[in-house]
Amino acid sequence: MLEFDWGVIWKYRESLWDGMLTSLQLFAIALAGGIFFGTLLALARLAPWKLVSVPAAGFVNLIRSIPFIMAIFWFYFLTPVIVSKFTGQQGEAVGPFTSAVVAFIMVESAYYSEIVRAGIQSIPRGQPAAAYALGLNYWQSMGHVVLPQAFRNMLPVMLTQAVILFQDTSLVYVVALKDFLGAASKAGQLTGRIVELYIFVAVVFFILCFLASHAVKRLQARLAAGR
């Protein structure tokens, strides 16, 4: 008969909390970077010049067709090799956190660019036309007229993607970054109480993500009512 010892969670609370902070930090940076670069990528894809739109589309399609975990993995292990090939010097290790941040921003910007692109395309063409007719230039028209409306329309989808992103932060265990899951794993290995710790991780993820998706649903209802 299996005996549970939930005390290990309390015992390792500090290391688990540190792990959660790492996860949250990665999440926040990846989210901000993903939305920022995703917006730029979306604008590039919608640009009338092939020289801009084709590479942007190529990047987005490439990233979206490889598994997330591969991007993290490759970036961590291959970038130093590539850098040393080009510079002739031994590639300096950037560390798992920096490397994970870059990989996350790259991948998330590809995902967010598709959301932003759909959001921009949901705005009637008369809106930018009216902005241009007032004499606003491209960036002013985007910044004051199109994007604020587009972001409002895509807010629910963006938040849903954010929930997925938060769950995906646990993938960094492949580069031995001590996130929340990593911290729990470590504690589990040390104490042999891996089941308790994994259940704890699952419950925490469930509660956070459940609350977040609930909030998204309520927001969606409010936005629909405000229309």
Binding site: P124, G126, Q127, A129, A130, A131, Y132, A133, L134, G135, L136, N137, H144, V145, P148, Q149, R152
Partner: peptide, 29 residues
């Protein structure tokens, strides 16, 4: 943009900016 700033245009579907107050619609440009 410079040329358009001095030619007023009124559209079939009004095209006011729905996320801005009437005042902001009038002052943005």
């Amino acid at each position: 943009p410079k040329l358009r700033a001095h030619i007023g245009m009124v559209f079939q579907n009004f095209e006011l900016f729905p996320h801005m107050s009437i005042t902001r619609n009038l002052t943005l440009g």
